[in-house]
Design a protein around this nucleic acid. Structure first.
Lengths: 191, 191
DNA sequence: TGGCAATAACTATGTCCATAGGACATCGCT
DNA sequence: AGCGATGTCCTATGGACATAGTTATTGCCA
């Protein structure tokens, strides 16, 4: 259920075609809630059918593409979702499952695995930190587009919460990397 | 794909019926990889059909229930999975999405939301810490069952990696709780 | 011994999501 | 004018997962 709100959130910055959504998604809300094209396009159409988005046909070659904009109903639905009570969420991270049974793996493979994991998380950390910089500098394209039609006195507040989300993700990545280092040390101890 | 390995891992401790699996799951591997009954029962049958588990019929009233045990093929599949290269994993936590747009929520609702989230995470933290204690004391039922048929010199190693997984989850919960506290402070600043 | 709670085992249904594509458009080059 | 690279838009398929049930058995005690 979160994808739809991620899409609405993105489209409140500015109207976009499906392709633009799918591109910008990956560099903004997508950090926070990843989704592939194959989910984005159908969901956009579904949201249009439900009246949370309006699609405007734009000529494209001999065909047309659709530019989506958020409707008032869409804004309302988003606000309701934001104001809804919290629902518990089960974390399901395969890394913990593998970690728990790392004693069963070949120690060298286990080490390779952890090193690779560390690389993934280091890369993600770098992307998150870079994006956070862009936000702080107010040059992030989606944020900049949003600021163009939002009164300046709200800018700080918006920026503060966007950054806050990134802070959480960055802290998590850092903690994960430390945890992986612990795992490598554990492997050294027990092999 | 992880559920099946979580189930195999659990069943290597001792053979169990579907019901036992679904109960014990929640107090062990389930912390690491949550799954409801409706996924567990079909997956067990699928694993049996693939030969990774054997089911033995046990009379139960006028009917029978099935007690599952891991086959050698099952152990092998598990080892292969443990030795496979790491695959990236997209984190998808609705909490970050909501956090990013908390400026859109009614401040009181936002505060309620964060407080509730904090409760969830505090509860989960308590469960994880308690389970970790049980592991350390070697009184955790699943671990105890496993130790009965595993040579004593391997006990420490197994315990170390189980604890390691819990350490990671505990660290994550602690970090999340701190992050939520930051969010509450942020709300105070901007409202 | 009849009833009721707790235990045990399982199913149905729909949505979410990942993997893997397919098809047309535009641009720059030769 | 033709060709390939890249950009744009979208689909098909199956498995994973959540929510919400159903049916049978056992134990207990009034």
């Amino acid at each position: 259920m979160s994808l739809r709100y991620a899409l609405i959130a993105l489209l409140t910055a500015q109207p976009m075609t499906g392709y633009e959504v799918s591109k910008r998604f990956g560099a903004s809300v997508g950090h926070v809630w990843h989704a592939p094209d194959s989910q984005i396009y159908p969901e956009l159409r579904k949201l249009e059918k439900e009246g949370l988005l309006v699609g405007e046909d734009v000529p494209w070659g001999t065909k047309t593409k659709t530019r989506y904009a958020v409707t008032e109903a869409g804004r309302q639905a988003f606000r309701e979702w934001m104001n809804a009570p919290a629902t518990p969420h089960y974390s399901r991270d395969p890394a913990y499952l593998r970690a728990a049974y790392l004693d069963q793996a070949d120690p060298d493979r286990a080490r390779q695995y952890l090193v690779r994991q560390k690389e993934f998380h280091a890369e993600r950390l770098a992307v998150l930190e870079a994006t956070r910089e862009l936000l702080q500098a107010r040059t992030h394209p989606v944020l900049a587009a949003r600021f163009e039609h939002v009164p300046p006195e709200e800018h700080d507040r918006i920026l503060a919460f966007r950054s806050y989300a990134y802070d959480g993700m960055i802290a998590r990545e850092r903690a994960t990397i430390e945890w992986i280092d612990d795992g490598l040390r554990l492997l050294d101890t027990y092999s």
